[in-house]
Amino acid sequence: MTDLGPDPTRLPEALTEQEAEAFAARHGLEQVGVRPTLGSYLRDLWRYRHLAWSMARGEFVSQHRDNYLGLLWAVLNPIMLGVAYYLIFGVLLDLKRDVDNFIAFLTIGLFTFVFFSAALTSGAKALLGKVSVMRSLAFPRVLLPLVVVLSGFVSNIPAFLVLLLIALATGEPVTWSWLLFPVALLVVAAMGLGMAMLVARVVHAARDLANVVPLVVRLLRYVSGVFFSIEARVAAIDDAPVWLGPLLEFQPGAVALTIVRQTLMSGLPLDGTTWAVACGWAAFFLLTGFLVFWRAEGTYGRT
């Protein structure tokens, strides 16, 4: 009799799990918190494409709104970094002797790498940093890594335009291969997006790994030939194993920089192998990144 007292002991009766499932199915309800099929996930993604664009714009604005110079910093920052790198690595360590046009070589590598690494680091925070958004709005969660990469790409467009000016100013001839410059950047963006999706999922599953991402990015910066020519440096090692050169040159970070350089620098002609490897990496990361991210859809937001 006391079951309705201050501490009710009898809980409201409930359907069993099987009954509930049959009941929901009978009325055509949709289960939430489960992974959608790949096809419907892709359809959702397409349906929400306008939202992706609005969110990228929002991300972009909120990153550049808080200071007076705003978007100018997206150009100023890599330029200042470029000057510092030029003095330290180019002049002090004399790495500029390996390359004909070191200024263009360095700035193209640096600006591309800044975008590429930002995709990785912001991809790591794409889910964990957006928990409040996930808790208020429902949309395919893959938009979150997509949005940070999209916004990163857009905010780097002025820097990419500056690269054209630098190439002109340092005496590179304008050739048909310049038309491939945006294509190369898109290949890099695709690679970065794939990695961002991959990292976002991994960090969401094991958040401590977020601490490792900056370390990986830093290592990548040193092994990708941002400020030195891998070819020339490996050749300078007397007893380098044969696999060392290709390993360093064809890893994703290095080919990303190389294909962009090849479109603007006459000293580095377009090379089919490098492009094929770059496109291969881009396709590989895009595909695995998307699949890996999709596999855990329906668990994001649970912390």
Partner: peptide
């Protein structure tokens, strides 16, 4: 918005 840890929701 937040998937349940166990149980189901339709």
């Amino acid at each position: 918005l937040v998937p349940p840890t166990s149980g189901s929701l339709w």
